[in-house]
C-alpha cells in the first residue's frame, strides 16, 4: 500500500534551538525506503511523526486513506524500535500476542517458531539478549499484520553476527512490504533499500535508488556520508603530485568537488593518472583499505593485498567520478 508523507514538524527541546523536520516522500506499494542520515539529523523524529506521536503540519496517507488526524492505533503502521520497547512485565508470547485484542493477529507461537525462537515464549524480556529481544519485537510488529512498517534503526544496537542474521531476515520479511527504514548505517541501507533518502538537519537532501545515491551523490555531504571519497577541486581540476588532473564539468556550473567510491579507484593501472604516497593500510576481510595522500587530500582505495611500495600508481576512471558543486 502506497504511503504518502508530506510533513513539516517542529521540535523544541530544553536548551536547544528549534529543530524542524521537512519531508515529502512517496513510498510505493511494496517498496522499502531507507532514510539514511547521521545522528541528530531528525530521521527518528520523522518516523515518529509518521507514526502519529508528534504534532505536524501537512498530510500523511496510506493507500489513499488520510491518516493525518488518526491516532497511532488507527494508522495501520507497524513500528520496530531501536531499543526494542518490549513490555517487560509480559512474557515473550504475551508481547507478541499484545495486539490480539484489537486485531486479527497471526499466531504468536507460529511467528516465534518461524524465527526459531520458540524456546523464548515463556521468558520475560529483561532476561533476553539484544538479538533475542529484536526477534521478539519484530514478531510482535508482524503479528498485527500492519499495512506498512516503520523501522527505527532496529539493528544498530546489535553485535555484528546478530546484525547480519537479522538483516537477512529483514530483507525477506520486508521484500513485499511497504516500509520506511531509518538508519545511519550505509551497509544496511544498501542491503535493504529499494530507494534511499539521505536526510540532513531535518531535510531530505537526495533521494534515489541505492546505485544512484551511492554512485552519483549530488552533494559533498551525501558523498561523504555514503562512504565515497570527496576531494576538493581547484577551478575544475584536482591538484596531484606533479600536476593537475582536469575533469569534465559538464552540467555542473562550478565544479568544486569530485566524488568517487573507494572500490572504483584503480591502483597500479596500465596508464596511471598520478602516483600517491600510502599513509595507512587498514586490513579488512580479504582486502586492504589504503589511505592515500593526494597533494594534501585524503583518498581511500581498496587493494587486494598490502602494497609493496610506499607509493602507488592511481587512476580515477572518469566514468566513475562525479563532479559536484556545493
Amino acid at each position: 500500500m502506497t504511503l504518502e508523507i508530506d510533513v513539516r514538524a517542529a521540535f523544541t527541546a530544553a536548551g536547544a534551538d528549534r529543530f524542524e523536520v521537512r519531508a515529502d516522500l512517496s513510498v510505493p506499494d511494496g517498496e522499502t525506503l531507507v532514510v539514511l542520515g547521521p545522528s541528530g539529523s531528525g530521521k527518528s523524529l520523522l518516523l515518529e511523526t509518521v507514526a502519529g506521536f508528534h504534532d505536524h503540519e501537512g498530510t500523511i496517507s496510506l493507500a489513499g486513506r488520510d491518516l493525518t488526524d488518526a491516532p497511532p492505533e488507527d494508522r495501520g503502521l507497524g513500528f520496530v524500535f531501536q531499543d526494542y520497547a518490549l513490555f517487560p512485565h509480559a512474557t515473550v508470547r504475551e508481547n507478541v500476542a499484545f495486539g490480539g485484542r484489537y486485531h486479527d493477529i497471526r499466531d504468536p507461537d507460529d511467528l516465534l517458531a518461524e524465527f526459531g525462537v520458540s524456546d523464548l515464549a515463556d521468558r520475560y524480556p529483561p532476561t533476553l539478549s539484544g538479538g533475542e529481544r529484536q526477534w521478539v519485537a519484530l514478531a510482535r510488529a508482524l503479528a498485527v499484520r500492519p499495512d506498512a512498517f516503520l523501522l527505527d534503526e532496529p539493528l544498530s544496537a546489535l553485535d555484528v553476527p546478530t546484525r547480519q542474521t537479522l538483516r537477512e531476515v529483514l530483507t525477506d520479511v520486508l521484500a513485499d512490504e511497504t516500509a520506511v527504514y531509518v538508519t545511519h548505517n550505509r551497509t544496511t541501507a544498501r542491503a535493504l533499500a529499494d530507494r534511499v533518502a539521505v536526510i540532513r538537519d531535518g531535510d531530505i537532501v537526495q533521494i534515489g535508488t541505492p546505485e544512484t545515491v551511492f554512485e552519483r551523490p549530488e552533494s559533498p555531504f551525501v558523498a561523504r556520508f555514503t562512504g565515497a571519497n570527496c576531494l576538493e577541486l581547484d577551478d575544475g581540476a584536482l591538484a596531484v603530485s606533479g600536476g593537475r588532473l582536469t575533469f569534465e564539468t559538464e552540467g555542473v556550473s562550478a565544479g568544486t568537488h569530485l566524488a568517487i567510491r573507494p572500490e572504483h579507484v584503480e591502483l597500479d593501472p596500465e596508464s596511471p593518472d598520478f602516483s600517491a604516497p600510502v599513509e595507512r593500510v587498514l586490513h579488512e576481510e580479504g582486502r586492504c583499505l589504503l589511505a592515500l595522500d593526494v597533494a594534501g587530500q585524503g583518498l581511500d582505495a581498496y587493494a587486494p593485498a598490502p602494497p609493496k611500495e610506499k607509493e602507488v600508481e592511481v587512476t580515477l576512471p572518469h566514468d566513475r567520478v562525479t563532479v559536484l558543486s556545493e
Partner: peptide, 25 residues
C-alpha cells in the same frame, strides 16, 4: 519508557488501554 507506551499504541491500544495494560502495571 515512552517508547514502550508507543509500541502499545502501534499495536492497536488506545490511550486508556495503553495506560491499563502497560503504564499501570
Amino acid at each position: 519508557p515512552t517508547r514502550v507506551e508507543w509500541a502499545a499504541r502501534t499495536l492497536g491500544a488506545n490511550r486508556w488501554e495503553t495506560f491499563r495494560r502497560v503504564t499501570a502495571p
